[in-house]
Amino acid sequence: MTSSSSSVSADAVPRPDAKAGLMGQAQSHPLPWLMPVIVVIGAFYLYPILDALRLAFTNASLTGGEEVYSLAALRAVLTNPALPTVLGNTAIFTAASVVGQMLLGLGIALLVVRGERNSLPGMLVLRTIVLAAWVVPGVANGVIWSMLFSEAPFGAINSTLGLMGIAPVSWLSSPQNAMISVIIANIWQGTAFSMIVIYAALKGIDETLYEAAAVDGALPWERFAFITLPQIKVALLINAILITIQTLNTFDAVISLTGGGPGRATEVLSLFTYNTVFNNFDLAGGSVLSIVLLVIALALAGLYALFLPRGEK
């Protein structure tokens, strides 16, 4: 396009002004055209980030008072003995959730696509049920699972286990179990997103590739490994980036299920940040933590992006 227009202008052929048109103006003076976008992004995305960055180097508190620039907050946060625990929790929670959601989402998506291919009834219902979990607000999700995991005699899971003669499990009061419970609740809710992304990718695979592979003698697992996986690789990576960031930012389900406890057993970074700001009113410390969160998210996204195919198709 650009090469053809330049070759046209290289000729001495007079060109009507209309031909230069809006595109020409946009190319020679881009700024006015980009201003609206820059303003919106600047006001709603960039400014808060920059402000958080600024606040991280103050002594700002939620209760107000005079702001003084200092490194105290930074030092306090980074030397906080709770930080390693919180980061560890975050790593476990995020890794397990992402892996779980991907595997479960992939499994269900494969099942649905297969079912649809063999025109099994009920596939739409299955998809809808999975999606229903996703539209439940995080806090409600926590409440639902706190009822399921309840250790009181009427707790749904424990009473079911009781019927089968299995002793009650301390789902929320034991530190290890609490982390597992939180992860289960989060996977249950987040799987739908992965399923939809992977389902769409699977639907996009040309059916005849499988037929060609079948004629080539590929076994079912080989078809999965050599056709399906490479074909949905990009979708899987992008999905991984999205749900990693999503999970890093999750605290609503945790707060309503365990509140971060017992102790700090399920306190993840986003919840820790929330508590720092809204329980301790430490706006500066919270800003430091949210910057840490941002850096972790960016680093992970960058890591995944390394595996995205570049240039060649």
Partner: peptide, 18 residues
């Protein structure tokens, strides 16, 4: 299909894109 020892050329070729 794999056990029949036949080879097929498809209308859209069905080459493995990756």
């Amino acid at each position: 299909p794999g056990a029949r020892d036949v080879a097929m050329v498809f209308q859209n070729y069905a080459l493995y894109p990756h």
